[in-house]
Write a protein that binds this DNA or RNA. Sequence first.
DNA 1: CTGAATCCGCTATGATACTG
DNA 2: CAGTATCATAGCGGATTCAG
Lengths: 135, 135
Amino acid sequence: MSGTHTGVPSVLAHELPRPVPIDELEACPVGELFRRLGDKWSMLLLILLGGRPHRYNELHRAIEGISQRMLTRTLRALETDGLVRREVHPTVPPGVEYSLTPLGRTLLEPVSALADWAVRHEADIREARFRHTGA
Amino acid sequence: MSGTHTGVPSVLAHELPRPVPIDELEACPVGELFRRLGDKWSMLLLILLGGRPHRYNELHRAIEGISQRMLTRTLRALETDGLVRREVHPTVPPGVEYSLTPLGRTLLEPVSALADWAVRHEADIREARFRHTGA
DNA sequence: CTGAATCCGCTATGATACTG
DNA sequence: CAGTATCATAGCGGATTCAG
């Protein structure tokens, strides 16, 4: 993707003035972020860690369904993006604590907003789906 | 976004009091929605259609990179969920117009909030990534 | 306890060609 | 113009096993 399109003005403006510079939208961080959070577990971990720090197996047990592979993978990805911090305590046995970084905490807000929407409009979507398939 | 949450997602706060019964979160609409929107084009289309209604090929040209297959698939998925409306005008040649439903328009807000975050914190993430790989 | 390594199926996405 | 059908591929994600 190309550099700093400083503008990226009305990605959000509910009124997009002209033909929409999609080239930028496409390559812009928005899509990238959604891909990141769009995987099976990222947002779940964000919300979980948003509550309080967790140890590795604590997360593993809490999510109940995630494989070690994906848990580690997802945590590493979030860590790479600076959203999650990993702290190793040199105890015996070793304990690793995961928590949100300040950046991660700021992300928690819009994520929560979206989650909130999902909860509030769950019925609407279900109904729409039903009408599509059933009727 | 939602008012008084001091760092803890309201969704969980009111439904997940303790050690967090994630089983529910897993099967809950939140994850489902993120999976939906997490694909490569859904959110892009939502934002595009949030600006104004578009015709099929108009979208195809605007996005420049999407295949007909995926454009159709994504639109259908959004339509199934009641987020996008498809209107066929019996003209010659046929014209099909896609637009957001009222439900879709409500979703546009939290989606925009997240997009906004992505734009504002693009640099932070880039830096975090750099520190991880480079140093 | 906290992972890493390996194998493998599934699904999302793309390329291409064809249709009403 | 607005799709559909078919084939091919890459990566996600799960199960299992091994290790510090």
